[in-house]
């Protein structure tokens, strides 16, 4: 990870935790009690939660607060503050890590776009790996990933002939090319239309986000997505304490609960602070171009104006903000 510079400023705090819990998520009881004392949550709620994770690993207070939490767009600033604090406390309790969760707002005059050079992609999957680490995906072998790299035969564009599980000794394999697919951040997103509770929407900077605390887990958005970009937490994802990325965003890479849908969010926790998405940073061939579509001098606008580009399944009219191009 040459360019992966998470500031692990919390490492010293985490240290005793990660050694104690030995990289597992289930926090032993004594540890939990000590934590609760530290948090100053005592009394009936405290003892209940300390004896068993009766409220999904939360204190009664946090469980109630979480249950009655409003949808993100409707929350007042103070409610958001409370929600962020709950997220941080829950991460401490469940994962044993001090995370920082913020809700950096979108920048004015910015709509994000992505372009990927198909003739440069060599199928290394470095982007996939960087994404998993950046976005706090579960680390058990069965955890999901936002980016799928499809291997296709030369002369083929039929996705049914694609293989996303390729694992040869070396890539690129002669006669094959590679097509990474992730959320296209459609300008007319069918997933947003599908959601019955408005748990997913498009932010002003064009990122389609999910409120993991509002999603009811009906998975209708997964049915509606033409890019298979949405993934469901079939069980509680687990992350060893030392692998948690502590820089999180409410709509982005904060640890997700079980039973909700998640998706690529253009690394909202990074891009809203001006940084490149983790996949773009990790790509060893420079195939990924990310930037502001509203800036006529941006690199992405140069690509769109000067390169042969295409959008995946553009015939569906979802207007992806993710383009593929060739040299």
């Amino acid at each position: 990870m040459v360019w992966n510079n998470h500031e692990n400023s919390n490492m010293s705090d985490q240290h005793d935790v990660s050694t104690q819990s030995a990289g597992t998520v289930t926090v032993p009881d004594p540890h939990r009690r000590r934590l609760l004392k530290q948090l100053g949550i005592a009394g009936a709620a405290g003892t209940t939660a300390a004896s068993a994770p009766a409220w999904g690993g939360s204190t009664l207070l946090d469980a109630l607060g979480g249950f009655f939490q409003d949808q993100y767009q409707r929350m007042s600033p103070s409610e958001i503050e409370a929600a962020l604090a709950r997220i941080e406390r829950k991460a401490k309790r469940d994962l044993g890590v001090d995370i920082h969760c913020d809700n950096t707002p979108p920048q004015a005059g910015v709509v994000f776009g992505y372009a990927l050079n198909v003739s440069r992609c060599r199928g290394y999957r470095d982007c996939v790996q960087a994404c998993i680490q950046e976005n706090n995906h579960g680390r058990d072998p069965s955890s999901t990933a936002y980016i799928r790299v499809l291997e296709l035969d030369h002369g083929q564009m039929n996705l049914e002939q694609a293989d996303q599980y390729y694992d040869p000794e070396t890539v690129p394999v002669p006669g094959k090319y590679y097509l990474p697919v992730q959320c296209m951040q459609c300008a007319d997103p069918p997933c947003v239309k599908a959601c019955p509770v408005e748990a997913t929407w498009m932010e002003p900077d064009g990122i389609v986000v999910v409120d993991y605390d509002w999603c009811i887990g009906c998975r209708y958005c997964m049915t509606a997505c033409p890019y298979w970009a949405r993934h469901f937490n079939w069980k509680q994802p687990t992350i060893p304490a030392d692998q948690v990325n502590p820089d999180t965003h409410y709509l982005g890479n904060r640890p997700r609960p079980v039973g909700v849908v998640e998706k690529c969010h253009f690394c909202i926790q990074r891009t809203r602070k001006g940084r490149l998405p983790a996949c773009a940073e990790a790509c060893p061939t420079g195939a990924r171009v990310f930037g502001n579509l509203l800036d006529p001098h941006s690199e992405i606008r140069y690509v769109l104006a000067n390169k042969p580009v295409f959008q995946l399944k553009s015939e569906l009219g979802t207007e992806p903000k993710f383009w593929y191009f060739t040299d």
């Binding site: 408005e198 509002w214 009811i216 469901f232 039973g259």
Partner: peptide, 20 residues
């Protein structure tokens, strides 16, 4: 029973939740 979060079923109630 198909819902991942049946505890959040109230999100479907108009006004109280957000009914899309």
């Amino acid at each position: 029973i198909d819902l991942g979060r049946p505890d959040r079923l109230w999100h479907l109630i108009p006004l109280l939740g957000r009914f899309h």
